[in-house]
């Protein structure tokens, strides 16, 4: 599945500009808000669902080759987080729904199965 399909299939808005390749491929999903734990357990290709908005989330995504972060429950990135995501080429999205809801939708779409 490609990142840009997510915005079409789910009620999710894209925060980073289109020039970051929204056609990046995602192959799984991970939910977590303790960044040290996510660093140790998420996998390359995962879409990451989190409520954390601090700029460190971008570094964690880059470290693990996670192409896309979805901020759930209407959380919006801090300015420097959005700036870093643009700079590092990480797709940042936001959803009003909970991580449970978004992960459920992704699962039912077949992601990571």
């Amino acid at each position: 599945m490609k990142c840009n399909e997510l915005t079409k299939l789910l009620n999710i808005s894209l925060l980073t500009p289109d020039k970051i390749d929204p056609a990046l491929e995602v192959s799984g999903c991970y939910c977590g808000d303790l960044l040290s734990y996510v660093m140790a357990h998420a996998k390359a290709g995962d879409v990451w669902l989190t409520i954390q908005t601090h700029q460190n989330i971008v570094a964690v995504a880059v470290l693990l080759n996670m192409p896309c972060i979805i901020l759930v429950e209407g959380n919006m990135p801090q300015n420097d987080t959005l700036f870093k995501a643009q700079k590092e080429g990480v797709v940042l999205m936001s959803s009003q729904d909970t991580a449970y809801h978004v992960a459920g939708c992704l699962y039912s779409l077949g992601l990571g199965r």
Partner: peptide, 14 residues
Amino acid sequence: RKVFSLLGNLGFIP
């Protein structure tokens, strides 16, 4: 500590 801490919650010192 693993929780309620800068390293636990944010992974590293920004």
